[in-house]
Design a protein around this nucleic acid. Structure first.
Length: 324
DNA sequence: AAGCTTTTCAACCGCCACAGT
DNA sequence: CACTGTGGCGGTTGAAAAGCT
């Protein structure tokens, strides 16, 4: 936390040929109010304009960050639930350090929040757990909670160690290549065509885990998963019994490895190639994206069948756990 | 209570992609 | 094609808070 006062540095930025003094550092309540009022009244637009029009001596980037990470009304405050934590670990095992993509699947959470949580809490806990791989100590903060409702009770850390090691194949945060993952764990991971690179190397986004989440997915509207910051990220819907992890998308329209949406065709491909799917098909229910954040999102963490998910995870090949 | 250490997390930085000119 | 502005992202920083001795 930075002090608003002495950390406020006046920087100069060229704005319309005028050198404007911009504030840095912590936001004051007054600044928050200004930005909040402006956003509520005018909605989102060009952040530079917002900064100017709202009467803030801030750069647009700073305003954007403040809004996204703190002021957004749909933000969920407070500690991460065990379910969220487990989902983060699971998603990180697939996506690596793509915090924005992970955040897109955790309603009300920001990439920054998840990143901080990972770096300060989960990473450490996994590391500690890694030293005692044979224990069943839970990775949850609520270790003392022996409740039967705890999704990890039966397997404890071991379950996630297995999952995490699978992830470890492509865990390097900066690596977007994950070919070995697709080939080593073909069963739970359905490789998808990379439409752009026209080769057979699957990147992370081309690997969609097909864990059976059980009967009640608990997703009232899984359609328009809004990318954390703007990109429309449709979920792949699993109706009835089967579902992929929500919103894991594939490349389909640019050369970038990140942030690409799954197309209807991709979903169809999934549907036709889902080895684990005995009961139904996967389809894209809705492709709705609005603005920059979760809006009208009805996805509820607690409604996922975590035990079903973890049961499948625990069936993955076991490998020793390492953390660099 | 005081001092030190560790943890947390808001905010910044630099880079990249993309669109417009 | 080059340049510029903007938005988005991941990595990093550093002060406050929390924990420990």
């Amino acid at each position: 936390m930075r002090k608003p006062e002495h950390n406020v540095v006046m920087v100069k930025e060229k704005v319309s040929n005028v050198k404007a003094k911009l504030r840095k550092g912590l936001w004051s309540p007054e600044e928050d109010e200004k930005l909040m009022n402006y956003m509520v009244t005018n909605g989102q637009g060009c952040w530079s304009d917002i900064a100017r029009n709202a009467g803030l001596q801030r750069c647009g980037k700073s305003c954007r960050l403040r809004w996204i990470n703190y002021l957004r009304p749909d933000l969920k405050r407070g500690a991460f639930s065990p379910q969220e934590e487990h989902l983060i670990i699971h998603l990180h095992s697939i996506l690596g350090n793509r915090w924005s993509q992970i955040a897109a699947r955790l309603p009300g959470r920001t990439d920054n929040e998840i990143k901080n949580f990972w770096n300060s809490t989960i990473k450490k806990r996994l590391k500690n757990a890694g030293t005692t791989t044979t224990t069943t100590a839970s990775l949850s903060p609520n270790n003392s909670d022996s409740s039967d409702h705890h999704p990890l009770k039966a397997g404890g850390a071991t379950v996630f160690m297995q999952e995490y090691e699978v992830a470890g194949v492509c865990m390097d945060s900066s690596s977007s290549s994950c070919s070995s993952l697709a080939t080593q764990f073909g069963n739970p991971f359905i490789p998808l065509m990379d439409h752009h690179q026209h080769n057979n190397i699957f990147n992370v986004n081309s690997v969609v885990p097909m864990f059976n989440l059980g009967h009640e997915v608990g997703v009232e509207t899984l359609g328009g998963a809004l990318g954390d910051y703007g990109a429309m990220e449709p979920y792949v819907l699993g109706l009835e019994n089967d579902l992929s992890v929500p919103g894991l998308e594939v490349n389909n329209n640019t050369t970038s490895n990140y942030d690409k949406n799954i197309s209807v065709n991709d979903a169809h491909y999934l549907s036709n190639n889902n080895n684990n799917n005995d009961h139904g098909s996967i389809k894209v229910e809705e492709l709705v994206g609005v603005g920059n954040h979760w809006q009208g999102e009805t996805f509820k963490m607690g409604e996922l069948d975590w035990e079903g998910l973890l049961a499948n995870v625990s069936s993955l090949p076991y490998l020793d756990f390492h953390l660099q």
